[in-house]
Design a protein around this nucleic acid. Structure first.
Length: 450
RNA sequence: GGAUGGGUGGCCGAGUGGUCUAAGGCGGCAGUCUUGAAAACUGCUGUGCCCGCGACGGGCACCGGGGGUUCGAAUCCCUCCCCAUCCGCCA
């Protein structure tokens, strides 16, 4: 959430930002209520002060009659306070509702637009996209090259590429049918080399991030709703993406961002302990409510997957640079996997609540014939930290400040599997293992079973 | 699941109705001493909000959350949550 004083003092900026974000929030009402809250607050404090004075004077009163007079005075004052408190609570409630609906401010360079159509492509990965064109004369050359402005000559598929579901069937890597039988549509079993691939992808990501000073962690796959709220996830309501555990205040996490953010909830750290760089491995659970019928085939949109997540707590002045750092690592990881991708600067209307700026990596997915999101990294500035109560203190200085939080996908296994299988497939239906994964796979390719 | 104990400032920990304006310690900051450092000693040191041009100025609230009793609650009552230990079961 945003700071109340900031909202009041920058009402026009906040209002404009809400428009850019495509969010309806009654800022005018908020400013009015906050003004009233302060006035009532001041009034209540004045009465409390008076009542405290009266209470203290009772012990000093000489005769019983005088004591009774003062007691009555004290009682009257406390009654008045109680009335104001009731009104204050009502105002406070309405303020909190509006406040929690106001999204974070946006980075001045983030592309402005109400939805993902305004997203801006910033860069491409090192690995060129391979496409398949029916009209090309396949017999002439094994690899056809076409020219594209601004890039090197691009290799093309010289065969019609399969999608990961077809590949997985040939290679016996996935069982969606059994997943559906056991847990319903959207669940799946990984089998055989897909299991090794998952472990290899985790090990590879962990390897890169450990060398960059991230502390590896596995996290609880459940978190208290309070922590979900703090990180900006909404555990209840019809639109929720979150599975909640019945008869408890726990939910299944949608990403390790949730428990990792919760790590410093309600805590104050020394400024010289920052930045804290964490690398969390967890399962991720998503109901995908409202996503019915959209890209439901295969692993693209599933209810459970494993993810290696980067998370950072930084000083405010360090968060912009940290976001670039996280983006750079995502690029390094996917370049290392020899997967073609593009980097997208997310438009204001597509940022969600907590993000100040967000970059997505979209990998080329030959089976879909389009780019699909595989990672996402966000700078949430102090928006999450304020709600979580994650603060830092500078030695020798008075007071505390909110840290900045950032998160970024290192590897989301399900979508990474799509990208690896589809981009590294070979004409005979086998899949070449990218060199970066071979140490953990113990083999160079996945071949169909004999 | 059963039993018990407990939630107090950055941390540890005392405190069972009115100098709690929360003892004491640790840590931190500043100073004295010292060639320098350590030790020792002295002082300062919680969070949030409000008032104020500002202060090393004033005020209010906060002892797990909420509610109650009282002129007055960390302290008494109700309720909820959380944590720890032991036992049982179990990977």
């Amino acid at each position: 959430m945003l700071d109340r004083k900031f909202i009041v003092e920058n009402a026009e900026l906040v209002e404009r930002n809400c428009r850019h974000r495509n969010v309806a929030a009654d800022i005018g009402r908020f400013v009015e209520l906050e003004g009233r809250r302060r006035a009532r607050q001041a009034e209540m404090e004045r009465l409390n002060q008076e009542a405290n004075r009266v209470s203290k004077s009772i012990g000093e009163a000489k005769d019983p009659a005088e004591r009774d007079v003062r007691k009555n005075r004290g009682r009257a004052l406390r009654d008045e306070v109680a009335q104001i408190k009731t009104e204050l609570d009502r105002i406070e409630g309405e303020l909190a509702v509006i406040q929690s609906g106001i999204p974070n401010m946006s980075h001045p360079d983030a592309p402005v637009g109400v939805d993902d159509k305004a997203n801006l492509e910033l860069a491409r990965g090192k690995t060129p996209v391979r496409e398949f064109h029916d009209h090309l004369e396949l017999k002439q050359e094994v690899t056809v090259q076409v020219e594209r402005p601004g890039t090197a000559l691009l290799p093309q598929f010289d065969f019609r590429p399969l999608d990961h579901v077809e590949l997985a069937e040939k290679l016996d890597l996935l069982d969606f049918e059994a997943g559906a039988r056991v847990a319903g549509h959207g669940f799946y079993f990984l089998k055989n080399d897909a299991v090794r691939l998952e472990l290899a992808l985790q090990a590879y990501a962990l390897d890169v991030l450990s060398s960059e000073g991230f502390t590896p962690m596995t996290t609880p796959d459940l978190a208290r709703n309070e922590i979900l709220d703090g990180t900006g996830y909404i555990p209840r309501g019809p639109e929720t993406q979150i599975y909640s555990i019945e008869n408890s205040d726990l939910s299944l996490i949608a990403t390790a961002e949730i428990p990792l953010g919760g790590l410093l909830a309600g805590r104050i750290v020394d400024a010289d302990e920052l930045p804290v760089k964490l690398c969390g491995i967890s399962h991720c659970f998503r109901t995908e409510a409202g996503a019915a019928g959209r890209a439901t085939r295969g692993l693209y949109r599933v209810h459970q997957f494993t993810k290696v997540e980067m998370f950072a707590f930084t000083l405010p002045e360090a968060s912009d640079a940290m976001l670039e750092h996280l983006r750079g690592l995502e690029c390094r990881i996917f370049d290392g996997l020899e997967i073609p991708y593009r980097v997208v600067d997310t438009a204001t209307g597509d940022l969600g609540g907590p993000a100040y700026r967000k970059y997505d990596l979209e990998a080329w997915m030959p089976g879909r014939g389009e780019f699909g999101e595989v990672t996402s990294t966000s700078n949430c500035t102090d928006y999450q930290a304020r709600r979580l109560g994650a603060r830092y203190k500078v030695k020798g200085e008075k007071g505390t400040h909110f840290v900045h939080t950032l998160n970024g996908t290192a590897i989301a296994i399900s979508r990474a599997l799509i990208a690896v299988l589809e981009n590294h497939q070979q004409a005979d239906g086998s899949v070449a293992i990218p060199a970066a994964l071979r140490p953990w796979m113990g083999k160079d390719e996945i071949r169909p079973r004999q």
